[in-house]
Design a protein around this nucleic acid. Structure first.
Lengths: 220, 220
DNA sequence: AAAATAATTTAGACTTGTCTAAATTATTTT
DNA sequence: AAAATAATTTAGACAAGTCTAAATTATTTT
């Protein structure tokens, strides 16, 4: 039905869509998938014929409900496999993404269903991201990018947007793991960096580059 | 390094090699993979360049030690996933083959290693076939094709050569599952069929078509 | 041992997904 | 609002893996 490549394009378009409801630009998809714009244009035409995206030449694409459902089912599989790899096989949180990237394309709804049951119907993956349900519903848990926050206060780290091992290893070294609770001490207007403090009084600086990849929820 | 397609060819060649140490013919590979002989010739050239097989035009191929190692590592993964699917996710024995066929190509030795440990280092898959170890050694357990047996006596079903759901369902209906113990009552010289009897006195007929797909070990 | 048949390989083409370079369309600058 | 720049698409090509039809080599029959 859909090839692995198509699935990867749909995932990328879906991720680039959330937040901004504008069209997703060819160059953004190319950047996200480390491929050329020409290749993206070709694939978009194909996805458009399958009614997975709405395409207007020179003006990017919008994912359709049909395409979104495919993307969400792949994301569901991806996150369930991540839970399996960490909880069951004891991988570290920076090792699971790449493996899940392969496992997510094994096409069997029955497998996904049984994996879900075996894992105890988890609602979040090891990075704190919500696992879409069978119907493609994401139980949004009020998470916001840390970079978008304007009010000082107490927050909990609920997810990340960059799943690369290097970023995750950096976070872990700084003491930031899913569930970490911290307060914002200071926000710098100039470079958008911020200083946060953990309950153990340890305090760290966070640059804009980092905070725009951290998802948080208000705590208390 | 090796593509999924190459891996499937190597698996097929390996399986066709065991038993007869002659060359494997193009048409046999084509039959086994449901593809054309022309495609097989093309792929064989490629595998030959990678030193995975020794190829002599018009005379078939022999798998090299290098190619065999790849095949065995894929077979190892396949059988470990089958154990996982049956033991952990409670799939039935006729449902696991096709899924394992996809999962086996997820390329991570670390994943295989951890899966093996999680499953408790199983030595046989749910169909009774031995799981090759990390070094590509198969712990041959003295299993022989039932069709090759000439002595009456007591045997245990240790594996199957046809993993299709229809064949497995047929066996199950007849009462033949891995570990089944039975005695050969009679062997017909004419059509090579045989009659076997279980410990519960139930007796069934087995045609040559079936017995050449059953692996057994002598019992007691 | 030549003729007939069967198996294998080659030739040429198709599909999917990719690329670079050139052409086209949008956007920004002045 | 025309010129410069940036983004996107088209054109043409390539690699992997596949196919059918034709040509070649082996094997079997008589």
């Amino acid at each position: 039905m859909t090839t692995s490549t198509e699935e990867n394009y749909l995932k990328a378009i879906y991720h680039l869509s959330t937040g901004n409801q504008n069209s997703v630009l060819t160059s953004a998809i190319a950047g996200s998938l480390s491929t050329s714009s020409a290749s993206v244009t070709d694939m978009i035409k194909k996805l458009s014929e399958k009614n997975m995206v709405e395409y207007e030449r020179y003006h990017g694409v919008k994912i359709t409900r049909k395409g979104e459902k495919v993307a969400l089912s792949i994301i569901r599989r991806h996150r369930l496999w991540e839970v399996f790899l960490m909880d069951t096989l004891k991988f570290k949180w920076d090792e699971v993404h790449d493996l899940a990237e392969e496992l997510e394309h094994v096409s069997s709804d029955e497998l996904t269903k049984r994996l879900d049951a075996f894992l105890g119907f988890p609602k979040f993956d090891p990075h704190g991201d919500p696992i879409p349900d069978t119907n493609g519903k994401v139980h949004s848990n009020g998470q916001v990018l840390l970079s978008e926050i304007t009010k000082k206060g107490k927050y909990i780290l609920s997810g990340v947007n960059d799943h690369s091992p290097s970023f995750l290893q950096y976070l872990e070294k700084k003491g930031l793991i899913p569930g970490s609770i911290f307060s914002i001490v200071e926000m710098d207007e100039f470079d958008n960096s911020m200083q946060i403090i953990f309950s153990n009084k340890k305090s760290i600086f966070i640059s804009k580059e980092v905070s725009k990849n951290l998802l948080v929820r208000s705590h208390e």
